[in-house]
């Protein structure tokens, strides 16, 4: 009789352990599903909130790319860069996409900052020759093979308030 009781107790214990394990697995599965859902729907980084991987002056960036395109591309492309420089011009196309061009007006080379669509108004108000800091994702370097000057491209740029 006594023996019978302990076996029963043990069986019950086993059952509750299995129950706990099941529950734990369920929670884990739910967490995984939630993570996958979040990851799947993740939007590209909001640049106004992102911290810059590199903060530098326009000339420094231009020099690095001009000196060694490969190394500079490997170092900077895909990274968030905050660059301070002089506005050469602001271009806006017929669909409202604005590009801020940073650089020395005597040089053909420049940093072309394609502005985030939310920044269009702020960017349109920029005056040539003013000094600004702008933050964007570097997508690479266009060499001067077409005779139009070499350019560093920054994408989805936002102005950094000073």
């Amino acid at each position: 009789m006594q023996e019978h009781q302990t076996i029963k107790q043990m069986q019950m214990k086993k059952k509750s352990i299995i129950r706990y394990v099941m529950l734990l697995l369920l929670v884990l599965a739910a967490a995984l599903a939630f993570y996958m859902y979040k990851e799947f729907n993740r939007k590209p980084k909001n640049l106004s909130a992102a911290t810059a991987d590199f903060t530098l002056q326009e000339q420094q960036l231009l020099n690095e790319f001009a000196a060694d395109e490969k190394t500079a591309t490997a170092k900077y492309s895909g990274k968030v860069i905050a660059v301070t420089g002089t506005v050469k011009a602001v271009e806006t196309d017929d669909t409202g996409n604005s590009t801020v061009i940073l650089g020395n007006s005597s040089s053909m080379s420049s940093i072309r900052c394609s502005a985030d669509s939310l920044e269009t108004q702020a960017v349109a108000a920029l005056k040539p020759n003013s000094s600004i800091t702008i933050k964007g994702i570097c997508t690479g370097y266009n060499t001067d093979e077409l005779g139009l000057g070499a350019d560093i491209i920054l994408n989805r740029c936002v102005l950094v308030k000073q």
Partner: peptide
Amino acid sequence: LQFSLLMKSFEFERALMQEHFN
């Protein structure tokens, strides 16, 4: 006629898709 573009400048709606693409 010549075109040139940087692959990393392609913008996707989903960040994950953009990362996989690149």
